[in-house]
Design a protein around this nucleic acid. Structure first.
Lengths: 351, 351
DNA sequence: CATCCCAGCACAAAGGTTTGTGCTAAAAAT
DNA sequence: ATTTTTAGCACAAACCTTTGTGCTGGGATG
């Protein structure tokens, strides 16, 4: 079927090894005559030879493939980062095997297992975050690996994350500065580094401003839309409802928007919102969203660079933990309770 | 390093072939004693044996991998479809190699070439659409393949698309029904099946209602945000500006929204919009978007099913071309010029 | 007792590469 | 004329599986 080195060898009356060397640009190194070289290259082109990467990978113990494990590629934030990762990886000569975990830790374990069988050269993982033995396993076997977005603090590995605590702190502080005291947080998946840090920033900001912590305002348990929808519905019905909600992911925000629309409330008049993940549509929503923007361009790029450095240094490269700064983008989803006007800083960020 | 069949064979004093057969559940078929079977399975488990899929793939001529070629995974529509594809593929035992073409035909050709080298078992391609020889090449070599979203009409292959002409027709008809006569279309990449069909629907709707075609209102040339932004800016400045814009992709819409916001106009009062691709955020935008929804859940699922049927039938399965129906979702981005009120049909679709 | 059968496994090839080593013939050196 | 060098390439192993075929020893059969 497919053309192999052997076919070329037969056509040219050379040995397979000679053909291989010529096609791998090792003609000089092995003193192969220019005539032979030309002949081989020519017939390879004519036969439309295509190296079999499986065979190469087997022999070379290198697949030129990296595994990308994300919770949910349909989440715009992950989709954006994945796009960049794909591009940088491709430009560096690597393909990407895409795995969705759907925030299911068992699925994550399975998918990583599969990636090992496939012999990927390295892993970029946005872990679910509730278990880590399987990832430790990779590390003890010296598999090149970089953690992205979420992190395990006690793990010695490459990682690229945003300073979630700082981002959350800024978000909540901004609400406080605008006079809000009943501030709710809709959390993502509990006990993930991301959620812990965002929750931490929330709590810190309240404490620093002597605002009592109210457990009833600290709701939610995963990063999806439904979570945002349900929790917002409930929040709007409690006794002393919040005047502001801090939503900790773009999908949560989507659910929150839906709930607010359904209840006939308006943003920011009835309820203020600060979101995490500054999606592209944020400026053009019902109320242009004030939100915490992650440096998503950098994240993908750095992750790939760290990973490929690790792969190609064969274990000699230092592990780096990079913490990037988030940035609060002010728009119009926060009501200023002091001036009774829209956002005190009316800087319109058109993205 | 990694445990191989050979290692297990040595530990158990069996031959490699016996180990292979046991681990592939062929003990009975090859009359291997239960004792040996247990021993092998046990030590495989103890040593944490992991089959090398590269070697398997080489031997079996099957990689259990499919190549997914998309124009841009960061586009929410493609991201959503990709997520589904990944899930169905995984559940059927296939991994996904993800390729972005960035709407660049040369990149598409390169990526497909690479996929062939990697020995993928099949392809799901959302082609750029400006060249097709490289895809024909795959077909003549009997590679399982399904085209998604965009199509080549003269190509005998599996394909899943939406009826773009009908969707566009409905969209424009809806504008006409609301009294609009100056209707612009911002096109995507010219000469792609998708764009041709959407443009066709636009033209048909105008003709059927005796509205003259105005070339100045038929602008745009790719599916990205920047295109929507620039063209909208220009459209708003021409002599007799349009009262309505039909945007032919979600990213174009995003750019259009940005331009309209910048110009200080409001939707739908100053300009009406009907969009293609009903993104999740559509109901919660500045003006809840009236838009054409594609059956994106079905598209991914069907594509995977067609492909895997083709792969596993080894060429005996018929090629299917499926055309799915789009649906116009009415919200509030169209101004009724007759009644001077918001959308005559005020059905609010909360998605 | 000789023959046959069959359970139970091993051998080796094949799949397409890469690569260390070895071989041959011609050219150069002595 | 004999030895040494070197250009130019071939051989075979190795990577890890899978699989067609063949081998062996013990029990049953005649």
């Amino acid at each position: 079927m497919a053309i192999t080195l052997k076919d070329i060898a037969e056509k040219t009356n050379c040995s397979v090894s000679t053909v291989s060397r010529v096609l791998n640009n090792k003609s000089k190194e092995f003193r192969i005559s220019e005539e032979t070289e030309r002949l081989i290259i020519e017939t390879a082109r004519k036969l439309n030879y295509r190296p079999n990467e499986l065979a190469r990978g087997l022999r070379l113990k290198k697949s030129h493939t990296i595994g990308l494990v994300v919770p949910d590629i349909s989440n715009p934030f992950f989709a954006y980062v994945s796009h960049l990762i794909q591009r940088y990886a491709y430009n560096s000569g690597y393909s990407l095997i895409l795995c969705n975990t759907d925030e299911d830790i068992e699925l994550e374990i399975q998918q990583i297992e599969l990636l090992r069988r496939k012999g990927v050269d390295g892993y970029i993982i946005l872990p679910v975050g509730t278990k880590q033995e399987h990832i430790n396993e990779l590390l003890t076997h010296n598999k090149p690996l970089v953690l992205l977005d979420r992190i395990f603090h006690d793990m010695n590995t490459n990682a690229v994350v945003v300073d979630n605590r700082k981002g959350a702190y800024q978000a909540v502080k901004h609400l406080i500065d605008n006079g809000h005291k009943r501030i709710a947080i809709i959390q993502g998946l509990r006990n993930t580094s991301t959620n812990n840090a965002r929750l931490g920033g929330y709590v810190d900001a309240l404490k620093d401003n002597s605002i009592p912590i109210d457990e009833r305002l600290m709701v939610g348990n995963d990063f999806r839309k439904e979570n945002g929808y349900i929790e917002t519905k409930l929040l709007l019905k409690i006794e002393e409802p919040p005047t502001a909600i801090f939503t900790t992911s773009d999908l949560i925000t989507l659910g929150t928007l839906q709930a607010i629309a359904e209840e006939g409330k308006t943003i920011p008049k009835d309820v203020s919102i600060v979101a995490f993940d500054d999606i592209d549509y944020a400026p053009y929503l019902m109320a242009p969203l004030t939100s915490v923007r992650q440096p998503r361009d950098l994240m993908g790029q750095i992750a790939v660079k760290l990973l490929i450095d690790d792969i190609e240094s064969t274990g000699t490269s230092k592990k780096e933990k990079l913490v990037l700064d988030p940035k609060l983008i002010l728009r119009k989803s926060v009501f200023n309770l002091y001036s009774h006007k829209d956002e005190f800083s009316a800087v319109y960020s058109g993205y």
